[in-house]
């Protein structure tokens, strides 16, 4: 098994390298560079910049050097000093800008993952053990709805309903009073009271999908002979269901964590734009629009790295929980 884990770890290295290069290429793809975008922006407001100043700015940021040099400087900085370069737009080191936001994105993603499971597992088990009951049908309908509504649309609707019926402003992660306050229990509480909206938005889609999987898996497992053996041993229905089939039916859950994470992070990016959350979404969007390449690159890189780690962890977890794989 150690061999397997080592193998998986080794494989993630080329993946990382490819992702890094891909990221850099993507952010270099747009014609022109930050300065062009910057000048275009200034022109809109009526200012004009002469060629000399433009060249000066380019030189300052190293934009006039060959592509591979820029890449090596960039990646070297990250690897050696954890320095992600300078945000051209904000005139601040990228690392100062992103960690807070990535932290919040990860927090929301993790909470959503937990929420997804908290919804999907019990309901899936219930639906399978009480197949075709009224609640089973109800959950099926809700599940389909959850699968059909895109995250950002759900966020919009929640926002509108909150406003319409509760005169409650859904959006953001902090009340204005706490926005810039230092961390305290009160601020944390305030965070929690705002957090449920994005978490709910992000978990419904995933939960709806997982629910179907869980139900199908459970139905399949419940039909297997070992379930009958378990009853024949004298176990009660509850014991049988939770001790055996749930464990087997959960395997696909664990193996999909790796894929769930990228989806959640993606979902967070777009939901955050709608709900105006101080997570990665809005900033990433802006940096892409402005060709603030080191900032955008930093985001894409770190988010990708986290998903790779997530996939890795889920593979390892799967091996640990399923003896059939563990011993082969």
């Amino acid at each position: 098994m150690a061999g397997y884990i080592a193998h998986r770890l080794l494989w993630s290295i080329p993946t990382l390298i490819v992702i890094t290069i891909a990221t850099f290429v993507i952010i270099q793809l747009p014609p022109g560079d930050y300065v062009t975008a910057y000048i275009a922006e200034l022109v809109e407001t009526g200012e004009v910049i002469d060629a000399e100043t433009a060249a000066h700015i380019r030189h300052e940021f190293g934009l006039d050097r060959p592509m591979y040099e820029q890449f090596l400087t960039w990646i070297g900085g990250i690897l050696l000093h954890g320095d992600f370069g300078l945000s051209l737009d904000w005139k601040l080191p990228v690392s100062e800008l992103i960690w807070d936001r990535i932290g919040l994105t990860l927090l929301i993603s993790m909470l959503s993952l937990l929420m997804t499971w908290a919804i999907a597992i019990p309901i899936g088990v219930y639906s399978a053990t009480r197949q075709y009951s009224f609640l089973d049908h109800l959950f099926t309908v809700l599940g389909f709805l959850g699968r059909g509504i895109p995250d950002f649309l759900l966020a919009l609707v929640l926002m509108w309903m909150g406003f319409l019926y509760f005169n409650f402003h859904v959006g953001g992660l902090f009340s204005p009073a706490y926005e810039n306050a230092p961390w305290s229990f009160a601020k944390f509480g305030d965070l929690l009271s705002h957090l449920w909206v994005p978490v709910l938005v992000l978990s419904t889609g995933g939960a709806a999908g997982l629910l179907r999987i869980m139900r199908a898996n459970m139905l399949e497992e419940l039909g297997k002979p070992y379930v009958e053996t378990a009853y024949a041993q004298g176990l009660s229905e509850r014991q049988v269901v939770w001790r055996y089939p749930v464990r087997v039916a959960l395997n696909p859950f664990i193996s999909t964590v790796g894929w769930a994470l990228p989806a959640l992070i993606s979902g967070d990016v777009i939901t955050a734009v709608v709900l105006n959350l101080p997570t990665t979404g809005p900033l990433l969007l802006r940096s892409l629009q402005n060709q603030d390449m080191y900032l955008a690159g930093g985001f894409i890189l770190i988010l990708s790295v986290f998903t790779i780690i997530g996939t890795l962890l889920s593979d390892i977890l799967l091996v640990l929980t399923d003896p059939r794989i563990r011993h082969s």
Binding site: K224, Y226, T229, A230, Y244, D322, R324
Partner: peptide, 10 residues
Amino acid sequence: QEPMTALSPV
């Protein structure tokens, strides 16, 4: 009948 599937795999 089926000793393979009649025992819990996990």
